[in-house]
Design a protein around this nucleic acid. Sequence first.
RNA 1: GGCGCAUUCGUCUAGGGGUCCAGGACGCCGCCCUCUCACGGCGGUAACACGGGUUCAAAUCCCGUAUGCGCUACCA
Length: 452
Amino acid sequence: MTVRVRFAPSPTGHLHVGGARTAIFNWLYAKHHRGTFIIRVEDTDQARSTRESETMVLDDLRWLGLQWDEGPDAGGPHAPYRQSERNYIDVAKELIERDIAYRCYCSEEELELKRKAAEAEGRPPHYDLKCWLHRRDDHTPHAIRFHVPNDGDVTINDLIRGEVTWKKDSLGDFIIFRTDGLPTYNFSVVVDDHHMEITHVIRAEEHLTNTHRQVLVYRAMQWPVPEFAHVSLILGQDRTKLSKRHGATSVSAYADEGYLPDAMVNYLALLGWSAPDGRDVFDRAYAIENFSLQRVNSAPAVFDPQKFEWLNGQYIHAMSAAELRPMVARFFDVPWLEEGIDVVKTSVHRLTEFREALRFVTDYSAPEVDRAFAEAVAAELKNGVDDVKAFNERLKNATGLKGKALFQPLRMILTGMDHGPELVRAIPLLQHASEVDPSVLSPLARAERCIR
RNA sequence: GGCGCAUUCGUCUAGGGGUCCAGGACGCCGCCCUCUCACGGCGGUAACACGGGUUCAAAUCCCGUAUGCGCUACCA
């Protein structure tokens, strides 16, 4: 049987890192098994869902490079891929006819009162079965409930958590269709997953205790129950669920801060999953090849911005200036960008930092530099800088300065003489001329790097 | 309240009865490289929540406690 998995975002804003990780796990699982990765938009909550949000989420997914095989804009044999476009009422009607579901005419106010009374008396706040005991069928506004008999229990074998069991009497009759004519999540998700022939439901832990309701629907319809895998939550550094209070949490925010999609996929995959050989830095091909749900941790994970930034730096350092240039250009662009990137990239962890790292060239402010020093530099410059090491050596002897004291003012003078961009351009040539060894050339290059 | 899930260095984790006085990574500290800052290399710091069992042997299995989180909605 071929694996079919789906990521089902609610279009209520940008994709957040938690959702992104769930999407990544689904995608990795599908790719590993050469299966199908599907996107389905859960937009039955019309109050919160918008088409603009859907576009944003889809764009975020594309930015991450998680290409879907079926879904919005991709088509596929199991359309529609938006819940708002699917018909659910026929299934509900079938359940009513078979006396498994029933119409409920209770008002929300009435239910609210009963719930509070039950809680006050220490009883479970379950529905009191009023409309089940007095079933009727008329056109006054009503919701549809699923009847749960108080017998036996429901067990699933979660691929991440193992066996999880609930007693049926721990849950009351639940709504599958609202009065406004729209299906609830616990119902629509089952109908969708069944019609799309989803084989593995990989989703966040917050859905774990809804699963027993869904299994009941599968059983009632005599539909095959898919495999489940519930991934733990991502926490902020205060160990509460990651939210806006913790700073950037949306994928697009990280994109704006200069993080690379590959680094993000890598980091998020590491939050809960670990490579069999323990490596932290890996590309997509490696992750796909080695991914398995058995290696997904069931405990919640704290998002660590420092490690993410370090990892992003690893990607930047490993990339060539030519590869980096178009990505950096989104934030900052000059004609000599590629040469500049080449000079400073090892000191950068995020794409947005290139601007600051190259500031010494673009907008230095003329400092007070000792006149004698400036003249010494000018004199040495006349001799040329073909041998950087010798140049530095002569200058050091001439001024009696070294280290920071030497290079800071030197850099200022060089850029102050408007040689900045030319110097940056010259650096790769100098490097070449000085026969590879960076330690030989670098003094000048690195002097230019010195910002503070 | 009820039900469910979780608990290894500050953080991400390895570990699925003996090979663990617990390994790796980030961070932090130190050293090396270096005429500055980085990069890189080397080394160090630091953890099995607690209490009972089971067993010759438990981080690993079972029970309980504590703590955290989730669900218990006509949200998803």
